[in-house]
Design a protein around this nucleic acid. Structure first.
Lengths: 154, 154
DNA sequence: ATTCTTGCAAACGGTTTGCACATAC
DNA sequence: GTATGTGCAAACCGTTTGCAAGAAT
């Protein structure tokens, strides 16, 4: 019934369970496996990759569950999502370096005012990586949506 | 070159044609229309939105052409693309603020070393926008791919 | 017992691709 | 004349959704 509580180097199942609980999540072995996989991974895996990995230990898990779980983790702030900032690709004829503010509600995109070079220039630790472009995105609520968001509660 | 708030009545077809040519692009009226639409737009439109807009003037244009054209514009650096930094969503269990370096060739993602707060903090011009998360992405070539890229030319 | 989660499979939607025809150079 | 771009439609693929069965609390 219960899986053979396997220990994963140093950090124990118990710790992962508390972490899930601390984020208000119901605990299932699928969630444990998915979170552990992500926790010990260094490649910023996609849902598909997580799935392949987890499937080695739990062959019956479904890809759909991995998608739902990762997204739920992201919602409660347990994990970070690197990519899709907006739902679809958005273009801009202004190629001079500048940053973007993306509204989480209405998906509008605004440019930031100041120059865009110094901020990212100051980031340390590129070692060996050849930077061609940089992209800074601030996610939040635009003036218009902030109003509705604040008053409507949730 | 000014755009946005200031109307740019001065810019003529001829100017757009030169711009396309200057980027090594063959000139077609579709490309002109697409580029002009993007040039005068302030909403960072998606391919679909550009299509709807251009279709008003050229009802026979196809959505596929808009996709191909925008991507080509992006390739030659004529336009900027806001979103999809990586092909698919990529997750990360490390939620402490940090930035990412994404390799354009092998799609690997590495974390930057330093803290991630100050750089984006210093960006000016948020006026009214309520920032919840910030994401900084450096795109380029990782050490491994840089080697192959440099030697193979292209 | 009730609520939340899983698994499966079908649907979805943005994007890409293949190919015949048209156009730019 | 040759290379390149366009239009159309089908294919693609990552992701979402609906629902019945199963598990967590």
């Amino acid at each position: 019934m219960k899986r053979g509580g396997q220990i994963v180097e140093g950090k124990k199942d118990k710790d992962f369970i508390s972490t899930l609980r601390a984020h208000g999540l119901q605990v299932t072995y699928q969630r444990l496996a998915i979170y552990q996989t992500l926790y010990f991974s260094m490649v910023h895996p996609s849902a598909e990759v997580v799935y392949q990995q987890v499937k080695k230990r739990f062959p019956m898990i479904s890809l759909g569950t991995v998608y739902k779980t990762l997204e739920k983790f992201y919602d409660v702030g347990l994990v970070d999502k690197v990519s899709p900032i907006t739902e679809v690709a958005r273009y801009d004829a202004k190629t001079a370096p500048h940053h973007h503010m993306v509204c989480l509600q209405c998906q509008s995109i605004m440019d930031t005012a100041g120059s865009a070079d110094e901020p990212t220039m100051s980031i340390a630790g590129h070692d060996g990586f050849h930077v061609l472009r940089r992209q800074v995105v601030l996610q939040g609520y635009c003036t218009k949506c902030k109003a509705g968001y604040m008053s409507s509660g949730s």
